[in-house]
Design a protein around this nucleic acid. Sequence first.
DNA 1: TCAAAATACATTGCATTACTATGTATTTTG
DNA 2: CAAAATACATAGTAATGCAATGTATTTTGA
Lengths: 111, 111
Amino acid sequence: MNSEFVQKWQSQVKKGTLAFILLNILKDNEFYGYELMEQVRKFTTIEIAEGTLYPLMNRLKKEGLVTSKWVEQESGIPRKYYQLTETGVATLLEMRVYWQNLETSIQKLLK
Amino acid sequence: MNSEFVQKWQSQVKKGTLAFILLNILKDNEFYGYELMEQVRKFTTIEIAEGTLYPLMNRLKKEGLVTSKWVEQESGIPRKYYQLTETGVATLLEMRVYWQNLETSIQKLLK
DNA sequence: TCAAAATACATTGCATTACTATGTATTTTG
DNA sequence: CAAAATACATAGTAATGCAATGTATTTTGA
């Protein structure tokens, strides 16, 4: 079970999927990085590494899909909160259409 | 519509997804390369390039998920037919489980 | 008490894979 | 008879997940 091929495949499936999942998570709430990893683990079967999340969030920021702000804590390390921009919301909607079309196709193939 | 970000994202989504789709297509029938591209275009919204398909099929073959055989034509260029191996079938079943779990998670996020 | 685990951020370099461009050759179509 | 379609293939580039590594603070459990 879970042969090397399947493991590598799962890693490839994450390319693209992770960005889509994160934008969906950020649609209704803002979250900080560590919290985003928890959300992904809570809502999906996906394992997300720190070395994946932080560069990804920086890309999304650079692309103008999210913004971020530092929030000081009364104790502990400051947190960087991310939120969707208007562009991010519009982009997410386009992505959803593509995803749903793809998914419909795949479900047909699974029968 | 279809901004540069979305286009690049769609390309990333294909990583992994394409292998999954092709294995599913080959589950019940054998097909040759060009025919596989037609099947993908017919059943999905995905555009697949020749430079994507042939290296991908070679990988799947190298991994032992498919075998291939040349079939001479009465006229025209010989065709290379691909079929799933037992390993390929077993691997596909593992992939389906992963995909369905992922998809269930994503559908929850879409609400 | 104090070491380990958890929280919280981040970067570097490697491995993998889709895609463009390019190449060869045959057959069909307008 | 030229263009498009059919049919295979490869080299090089771009993009991204991930392990490894680093810093720093707080909580937990033995």
